[in-house]
């Protein structure tokens, strides 16, 4: 089976600090992969390198077998097909909920205003935010913002969605609403890479769980295997702290 995303020998340093050391990783179509690990282990950096928000220092990221850093590869088109949901939501503060979900469709995909609006409404309904289309981001709660951010990413009809700790900045009572939206998405066959500390979500939804430790992937497998039968002492230690 062809890998949607394949990461080979990925390296990234910030100054003298090596955050990613030779990371290998693949994601297959329709699979949900949860990336777990302690803070500073390189999880978010891996996700940001896949989306080129950080430029890798070495190695390669392949999208359907094509190197995303090669000169002829169209980055806007790549970004349209690989969406990202951020820990801090990052909704466009100057635009309403509806406009947030329309901007990329119109500017990047060249859709008409009408088509963009219909499509945006479809996903806003899906995440339960259709009632708030005229609100500005600062008027919404964290959980609402994150649901809009998910709708914004979905409105681009992506093949892959990257989630960078989507619930870490939320008040506890809002975590559930976002996770349940993500759970619904997982069932639609969307390829998802989720950096998370929500072990319950990883166990129930993920096809694959990846444990990162100090810049490398040390364990990978089905959730039961990784979460219930950890092999390395580091993972055992980590799970003992979070579970």
């Amino acid at each position: 089976m062809e890998h949607v995303i394949e990461v080979n020998h990925l390296r990234k340093s910030f100054g003298s600090h090596e955050v990613l050391k030779d990371v290998h990783f693949t994601a297959d179509k329709g699979e949900v992969t949860c990336i777990i690990g302690a803070s500073g282990s390189g999880k978010s950096t891996l996700l940001r390198c896949i989306n080129l928000l950080e430029i890798p220092d070495g190695g390669e990221v392949l999208f359907h077998g094509e190197n995303i850093q090669s000169g002829k590869f169209s980055l806007p088109q790549y970004h349209a097909r690989v969406g990202m949901v951020f820990q801090q939501f990052n909704l466009f503060n100057n635009l309403t909920v509806l406009k947030n979900c329309m901007l990329g469709q119109m500017k990047v995909l060249g859709r008409s205003a009408q088509e963009s609006e219909q499509n945006a409404m479809r996903f806003l309904e899906k995440v339960g935010m259709a009632q708030y289309i005229h609100a500005k981001p600062k008027q919404l709660s964290g959980g609402q913002k994150q649901r809009v951010a998910i709708a914004r990413a979905l409105a681009m009809d992506p093949e892959v969605l990257l989630f960078d700790e989507p619930t870490s900045a939320l008040d506890p009572e809002m975590v559930g609403e976002v996770l349940s939206v993500m759970q619904d998405l997982a069932r639609t066959g969307l390829t998802m890479l989720v950096v998370t500390h929500e072990m319950g979500f990883a166990r129930e939804v993920a096809h694959d769980v990846v444990f990162m430790d100090d810049g490398v992937i040390t364990e990978r497998g089905a959730p039961e295997q990784v979460l219930l039968h950890p092999q390395t002492p580091r993972l055992k230690e980590f799970l003992a702290k979070v579970l």
């Binding site: 989306n51 928000l53 980055l75 806007p76 088109q77 790549y78 970004h79 349209a80 969406g83 990202m84 951020f86 990052n90 909704l91 466009f92 901007l103 990329g104 500017k107 990047v108 951010a149 914004r152 990413a153 681009m156």
Partner: peptide, 9 residues
């Protein structure tokens, strides 16, 4: 970052 992540130049 959010703008770049949906493909805006």
């Amino acid at each position: 970052e959010a703008a770049h992540s949906i493909g805006l130049t």
